[in-house]
Design a protein around this nucleic acid. Structure first.
Length: 797
DNA sequence: TCTCGCTGCTTACC
DNA sequence: ACTGGTAAGCAGCGAGA
C-alpha cells in the first residue's frame, strides 16, 4: 500500500471490459508533492442521474434494462418542496444522454469526471492510497497507482514541467525545425530539432512523452503549430500519441457548424472574445497557448509575437521576413534556427511573465477542479463545481442546462447620465462585490424563492427570510467572501514574496468565482438559472445605487456619474483632508448589513464629458495615479497617434491649460494632414473572425450578396494579407492602414511585421479621426471643429 | 451628392 | 457551445433632400 499526494491536472475515464465485468475506470493525472508524475486509477464509480416522479412504465423498463445497475427511490427538494425521485445508476457514462433524452432525466449532463470529484468531495489536490502497478502500460507517468482510497488535501506547490515550442515550415508546409524551451524543476534548457521532417516529428513525440511534460505551450500553437505538426505526422506516418494515457492528441476545429448558419448570432449575443477557433487536448497534460492568455490578460493593441514580446517583456524578435522562409532556409539555415529559438524563448517568457499557471492553479483550488477544466475558461464549470456539491448535500434537484432559448434579457446595471465638467475633489464610492452582497443581504437563491417569502424585490419576487431557511447561493457567496478576507489577511502577513503572491492569486480567484455567480444566473442556459433570480439581483442593485444617489442629491450634494456599483460625488470640501473625512462619513453611513459602500478614491481634477463610460482624472487619494476610462487611449482599435496625443491632451486638461490643449490638437491635426507622421502611428488593429461568422448581407434592391471583405475593413485586411502569404487565424487581431476612405468600402492595406508598407495613407482620414476624438473632449469647453482645423485645410480634396 | 436613421461589428465599462 | 447587461464609436446601407 502506498500513499501519494498529488496536484490534479487532468481527469478522464476509460470504458473497461475485464473478465466479463464492464466498468468505467477513472483516470487522474498530476504531479506529486515530491515532483513525480502520477496516474491515479479508480474503479468502482458509476454514472447516475435522477428521474423526477417517473411513470410506472418507465420504472418497469428500467428494472429490466441490463445497463441499469440500480434504481433507488429518493426524496429530493425543489423550491423547498419534497419530490419523489429515482436515482438511476447505469454502466457506461456515454449512455447518459440516451437515457436523458428517452426519460427526461435530470442531473444528466454532468460530465463523469466532475461527478466523480463532486461525490468524493475531491478538489485540485488529492491524497491517493493504493497499489502501484507493475506494468505501467498504457500510462506514461513515473507512478501508476490503483487507488483504493482518495481524500482531499490542502493545496501545495509542485513544480510543473513546461515545454514551449515553435515551428518553422516551408511554403509547402514541410516542417524544417522545431524550437523547444524546457522548464523543468525551475531549470531552463533550449533545443532545436532539425534534420529530416520525419525524424523531427518522432523526436518531438519522444520528448513530450519521455520528458513527461505537464504543460505544452507556445505562441498560437492551438491554431497553428500543433495542427500542422499533427497533419505532418499523419503524412509521415508518425504517431501523435502524446497523451499520458497513450492516446492521440485531439484537435477540434470550431468551424461554421458550431454557429448558426446565417451568421454569428446566438440568441442575440456573439462570442467573439473567445479568440481561438481550434482547441487542442492532450489527455493527461495541459495545453496553454501563450497568445491566448497574453491576449486575455493584456488586451494589447497588436497581437503579433513581436508586438506582444515588446509590450510584455520589452524584448525584440529577430528580424526575418517569414514570407521568404524558403529562400532563407536555403541560404542561411542557422539564422532561421536562431530566429525559431528566439520566438520559442519569447513565447515561454511571456507565459511565465503573465503568471497564467499560477493564476489558474488558484482558481482550480478554489473551484475544486482539475487545472485543465479551469483553463477551458468556461465559467459555468466553476460555478457547477460549487453549487452542485452544495445542492447534492441538501438533496436539492439539480436540473440540466437548458438550450439557449429566446428568453428576454434581464435588465442590467444602472448608468447615471453624466453631468459634464472639469471638477476638483471628486469622491468615488464603490459597493464592494455588489451582486454577491445583494444575494447575501436578500437571501436570493433557487432554494428560497417562495410565495411565502417575506423578502420582496422591486419586481415582486419573494424570497424566504434567512432565519427561516438560508439559501445555498448566499451561503456559497458568504463562504467565498469570508475566505477572501482571510486570504487577504494572510497575504498581508506573508513572510516571502512567493507566499504573498500565492495568497494574492487565491484571493483573486475567490473574487473571480464570487462575481461569476451572478453571470450564470442571468444567462439563458445555465442549469440553476431562473430569470426571476437574475432579475432580482440587478433590480435590487439598481435600487441601492439610485436610492443613495437620490438621498445625496436631496441633501444638495452633486452626484455627477454612476455606473452599476459606483457613485461619483463632488466633494463639498476644498481640501483633500476634508474630502477624505467627508467621504469616510458617507461610507459609514451607507454601509449596512452585507452591503459595504467603500470610499475608493478622490480624483482631482476629474473630467467628465457627456458620454457614459468615459472619463479621466488624477487620483490624489489613497495613491497618486492617473485614471482614464473608455477613451481611445484605452482601446486596442485606435491608432497609436490618436492614443498618444489624446493622452497628451488629457495631461493639458488636468493642468487646466485648456488653451494649451487646443493648441496641441491644432498642431497634431495640421501635422497629420501634411503627412508628417510615422507609419506605425497610423496602424489600426481589430480582431477578425472566420468569414462564415459574419452575417450574410444582401443589397436590398438587387438581392446581391455583399461580402464581408467588401463591407468590413478588418476582413479586407485579412484577405489582402493572404496575398503576402500571411494567414491571420480567425480570432486574431489584424493590422492595417487606411489608404482611401472616400471610396465605399474604404480601402485599407494590411500592415505586417517584416513586410515594407508601400502605400500612401489617407492622411485626411486620420486628420478627421483625430479631430472627432479631440472634439468629443473639447466640446465640453465649447470648442468646435473650426477651432481645430485651419480653414484652408478644409475641402482641399 | 450629402444627411440621417438604422444595423452590424468591435471593444470598452462594470 | 455558451457568464451577464450597458454603452461608444466606426462603417456601410438605403431613403430622402
Amino acid at each position: 500500500m502506498e500513499q501519494h499526494d498529488f496536484k490534479l491536472l487532468y481527469a478522464t475515464y476509460t470504458n473497461r471490459d475485464e473478465n466479463g465485468e464492464r466498468f468505467p475506470l477513472i483516470e487522474m493525472f498530476g504531479r506529486t508533492r515530491e515532483g513525480q508524475s502520477i496516474a491515479v486509477l479508480y474503479k468502482g464509480f458509476f454514472p447516475y442521474f435522477y428521474l423526477i416522479e417517473p411513470p410506472q412504465a418507465t420504472l418497469d423498463a428500467l428494472a429490466k434494462d441490463a445497463e441499469v445497475r440500480s434504481l433507488e427511490p429518493r426524496t429530493l427538494f425543489r423550491e423547498g418542496r419534497p419530490i419523489t425521485a429515482y436515482k438511476v445508476t447505469i454502466t457506461r457514462p456515454g449512455d447518459t444522454p440516451v437515457y436523458r433524452d428517452r426519460y427526461g432525466a435530470t442531473a444528466a449532463d454532468i460530465v463523469f469526471r466532475s461527478r466523480f470529484l463532486y461525490d468524493n468531495d475531491l478538489g485540485s489536490h488529492i491524497r491517493a492510497e493504493g497499489e502501484e502497478r507493475k506494468t505501467k502500460q498504457p500510462y506514461r507517468t513515473d507512478l501508476v497507482i490503483d487507488a483504493s482510497k482518495l481524500s482531499p488535501v490542502d493545496a501545495f506547490f509542485a513544480p510543473l514541467r513546461i515545454l514551449s515550442l515553435d515551428i518553422e515550415n516551408l511554403r509547402n508546409n514541410q516542417i524544417i525545425c522545431i524550437g523547444l524551451v524546457r522548464e523543468f524543476e525551475g531549470k531552463i534548457e533550449e533545443e532545436i530539432l532539425d534534420g529530416a521532417e520525419k525524424s523531427i516529428l518522432e523526436k518531438f513525440r519522444r520528448i513530450v512523452v519521455e520528458d513527461d511534460v505537464d504543460v505544452v505551450s507556445g505562441y498560437n500553437i492551438c491554431n497553428y503549430d500543433i495542427p500542422l505538426i499533427a497533419a505532418r505526422c499523419a503524412q509521415n506516418g508518425v504517431s501523435t500519441a502524446w497523451a499520458r494515457n497513450g492516446r492521440d492528441v485531439v484537435i477540434r476545429r470550431r468551424g461554421m457548424d458550431s454557429r448558426d448558419g446565417n451568421g454569428a448570432k446566438d440568441g442575440g449575443k456573439k462570442y467573439v472574445d473567445k479568440g481561438t477557433n481550434t482547441t487542442v487536448e492532450i489527455p493527461g497534460r495541459l495545453v496553454a497557448d501563450s497568445w491566448y492568455f497574453a491576449r486575455k490578460e493584456k488586451r494589447p493593441k497588436r497581437e503579433s509575437l513581436g508586438a506582444m514580446a515588446h509590450l510584455i517583456l520589452g524584448k525584440e524578435k529577430l528580424d526575418v521576413d517569414t514570407s521568404k522562409m524558403d529562400e532563407e532556409w536555403q541560404t542561411n539555415p542557422g539564422r532561421v534556427k536562431e530566429y525559431c529559438l528566439q520566438d520559442t524563448r519569447l513565447s515561454h517568457e511571456i507565459l511565465s511573465k503573465i503568471r497564467v499557471l499560477e493564476k489558474y492553479q488558484a482558481i482550480a483550488d478554489v473551484a475544486k477542479l482539475p487545472l485543465f477544466d479551469c483553463l477551458l475558461d468556461r465559467n459555468s464549470i466553476l460555478i457547477d463545481s460549487l453549487l452542485i456539491r452544495a445542492a447534492d448535500k441538501e438533496k436539492v434537484v439539480v436540473p440540466n442546462n437548458h438550450h439557449g432559448d429566446d428568453a428576454e434579457a434581464i435588465e442590467g446595471g444602472y448608468v447615471h447620465e453624466p453631468v459634464p465638467g472639469l471638477y476638483d475633489n471628486v469622491v468615488v464610492f464603490d459597493f464592494a462585490s455588489l451582486y454577491p452582497s445583494v444575494i447575501i443581504q436578500n437571501n436570493i437563491c433557487f432554494t428560497t424563492i417562495s410565495d411565502q417569502g417575506t423578502i420582496v424585490t422591486p419586481e415582486g419576487v419573494k424570497f424566504l427570510d434567512p432565519a427561516t431557511k438560508e439559501g445555498i447561493l448566499p451561503r456559497v457567496m458568504k463562504g467565498l467572501l469570508t475566505a477572501r478576507r482571510d486570504s487577504k489577511n494572510k497575504m498581508k502577513a506573508a513572510k516571502s514574496p512567493e507566499e504573498r503572491g500565492y495568497y494574492n492569486s487565491v484571493q483573486n480567484a475567490q473574487k473571480i468565482l464570487a462575481n461569476a455567480h451572478y453571470g450564470v444566473f442571468a444567462s439563458r442556459f445555465y442549469r440553476f438559472t431562473d430569470r426571476r433570480i437574475g432579475g432580482s439581483i440587478t433590480a435590487l442593485a439598481r435600487n441601492y445605487t439610485t436610492g443613495i444617489i437620490s438621498k445625496l442629491s436631496d441633501e444638495g450634494l452633486k452626484v455627477i456619474y454612476s455606473d452599476t456599483d459606483s457613485i461619483f460625488v463632488v466633494s463639498p470640501e476644498q481640501t483633500i483632508e476634508g474630502t477624505v473625512r467627508f467621504a469616510e462619513k458617507l461610507s459609514d453611513r451607507f454601509t449596512q448589513g452585507a452591503l459595504t459602500l467603500e470610499f475608493e478614491k478622490v480624483v482631482s481634477p476629474f473630467f467628465l464629458g457627456k458620454m457614459k463610460k468615459r472619463y479621466f482624472g488624477r487620483i490624489v487619494h489613497p495613491v497618486q495615479e492617473v485614471v482614464v476610462r473608455g477613451y481611445e487611449t484605452r482601446r486596442g482599435d485606435s491608432f497609436p497617434l490618436l492614443s498618444r496625443t489624446l493622452d497628451a491632451l488629457f495631461e493639458r486638461i488636468m493642468e487646466k491649460d485648456i488653451e494649451g490643449a487646443v493648441e496641441l490638437c491644432r498642431r497634431e491635426i495640421k501635422r497629420v494632414a501634411e503627412g508628417d507622421v510615422k507609419l506605425e502611428d497610423l496602424v489600426i488593429s481589430k480582431t477578425a473572425l472566420d468569414e462564415s461568422s459574419y452575417k450574410v448581407m444582401r443589397r436590398k434592391k438587387t438581392g446581391e450578396e455583399i461580402r464581408a471583405e467588401d463591407r468590413l475593413p478588418h476582413v479586407q485586411a485579412v484577405k489582402k494579407a493572404e496575398k503576402f502569404g500571411v494567414y491571420v487565424p480567425a480570432g486574431m487581431k489584424v493590422s492595417w492602414i487606411v489608404t482611401n476612405s472616400r471610396r465605399t468600402p474604404q480601402q485599407v492595406e494590411p500592415y505586417i511585421d517584416g513586410i515594407p508598407f508601400s502605400h500612401t495613407p489617407d492622411y485626411h482620414y486620420y486628420r478627421d479621426k483625430l479631430c472627432d476624438a479631440y472634439l468629443r473632449v473639447l466640446e465640453t469647453f465649447d470648442y468646435d471643429r473650426d477651432a481645430l482645423v485651419e480653414k484652408e485645410q478644409l475641402g482641399l480634396f
